[in-house]
């Protein structure tokens, strides 16, 4: 009686596994489809360290996630993405993010001036490339 169960698991496991990898592939193609949207490694590192903790798909802070979700940025419609990118630039320039309260608890998440400058100019450059005038 046990054997059929094991066989069933063995047969289904690859199917389940494949369906996941297939999903990942489609996400990657949709990212790759927009060749203009690039996050260089150094910028990704800055984002991972100081922003991504709250601004991601699984964030516990619904508000942070709603205002900006880095997992969705690449698949957003252009207008919305430009708006978000421009806001990233603005809040960094104004020193509004990461929030001071948050930094008191997690000082290692703070942005150095240099990294802030890098992130802000990346965001504004990404946003500006969509303007065709």
């Amino acid at each position: 009686m046990r054997n059929p169960l094991i066989i069933m698991i063995i047969t289904f496991f690859p199917i389940i596994f494949l369906s996941f990898t297939h999903k990942n592939k489609t996400i990657q193609t949709s990212k790759a489809a927009d060749v203009n949207y690039i996050i260089p490694n150094d910028i990704q590192e800055i984002i991972n360290n100081s922003c991504y903790g709250c601004h991601n798909n699984d964030s516990k802070s619904i508000k942070s996630k709603m205002k900006l979700n880095f997992d969705k940025l690449s698949t957003m419609k252009i207008g919305k993405r430009v708006g978000k990118l421009n806001k990233i630039h603005d809040v960094i320039e104004e020193n509004e993010m990461p929030p001071k309260k948050f930094l008191k608890k997690y000082p290692d998440k703070s942005l150095s001036d240099e990294d802030g400058e890098k992130l802000a100019s990346w965001a504004i450059n990404m946003a500006s490339q969509y303007i065709n005038e």
């Binding site: 709603m66 207008g79 919305k80 430009v82 708006g83 421009n86 806001k87 500006s128 303007i131």
Partner: peptide, 18 residues
């Protein structure tokens, strides 16, 4: 600017949804 307009329109969505 176009960029600020895009951000304002995105803000509109956010504050309405929220």
């Amino acid at each position: 600017s176009k960029l600020d307009k895009a951000s304002a329109l995105d803000d509109i969505s956010d504050v309405i949804i929220d």
